[in-house]
Amino acid sequence: MILRDSVYRDELESMLKEVEQRAYHPYVQRYVRYPDINLFQLHFLFLFLHQTGISSALRRHYCISQMLIQLGLDSHDNVDNQKVSSDDSLKQRQLTILSGDHFSGHYYHYLAEHGEVELIHKWAGVVKTINEDKTRLYMEHDLLSQEDVLCLKRQIKRRIPESVLNWFDAPDLWYAILERFVCLSTHVEEGFPPDETFESNVERLKELIDRLGDRTLEGELTLWLDKIEQAYLVIEP
């Protein structure tokens, strides 16, 4: 796991452990495969929030709540529309839906527990927007061009981190870095073959990271760029 190579390893792993303790249920895990935590999103937001200088406690609240929200959204994405053929399949579908609601409920409870009422309302607006984007992707998928579908998928992937950048009036550089990372990761996830666009995005991202002017940030973000490039190398042309 990349986070083990981070200089902030202890703090990041502490947050991951709290999410697991709060939200993972052994009974549900017997029937449902929980989605993976979006580690890049966690790391990216942690680095940005660390750079803003906010307290470690508040940084933790943002990072943990976004993990629970993303897990809830990803759990609901795992629900298929195929006809259920057995009791076990029905149970699996029901538990998958409930696990998504379960994660979402934990984000609300976690923030309420820490008195972060305003952040609850902010995240609720983000979740609503993401669900609207996903509904459009599902309903209009066959009517959209391939490029429009990709743009919408990238937009969905950026919603949570972009929202945090917006709330803190982040410099344009952070948005540019996020956009390049999302473009590169989508390229790999969609299984697109090697091309010049990928290579140019890699070079542009390296330039953007260097413009941060911070050796620690550069090293942390380069961990993910290296991972993406390695994944890209195994894609068959």
Rank of each mutant, 00 (worst) to 15 (best):
L3F: 05
S6I: 07
Y8E: 03
R9N: 07
D10S: 13
L12Y: 03
L12A: 05
M15A: 03
K17D: 13
V19R: 09
V19E: 08
Y24M: 02
Y27D: 01
D36W: 02
N38Y: 05
N38D: 15
L39M: 10
F40G: 01
Q41P: 04
Q41M: 15
H43M: 07
L49A: 13
G53Y: 04
A57R: 12
L58A: 08
L58D: 08
H61C: 03
I64N: 07
M67A: 12
L68G: 02
Q70F: 06
G72Y: 09
N81H: 14
N81G: 10
S85H: 06
S86N: 03
S86P: 03
D88A: 15
L90A: 04
Q92Y: 00
Q94A: 02
L95G: 00
I97C: 03
S99I: 07
S99G: 01
G100H: 06
H102W: 15
S104D: 07
S104A: 13
H106S: 08
H109M: 09
A112M: 12
A112Y: 06
H114E: 03
H121S: 12
V126G: 14
V126I: 15
K128W: 03
K128I: 05
Y138C: 06
E140S: 11
L143P: 00
S145I: 10
S145C: 10
D148W: 06
L150K: 06
C151H: 15
C151K: 12
K157W: 05
K157A: 15
I160K: 02
L165C: 12
F168I: 01
D169S: 15
W174P: 15
A176F: 11
A176M: 14
E179P: 02
R180L: 11
S185P: 02
H187A: 00
E190T: 08
G191K: 01
F198K: 04
E199W: 04
N201Y: 14
R204M: 11
K206T: 11
I209A: 04
D210E: 13
R215N: 13
L217S: 00
E220F: 07
W224V: 00
Q230G: 08
Q230S: 03
V234Y: 02
I235W: 05
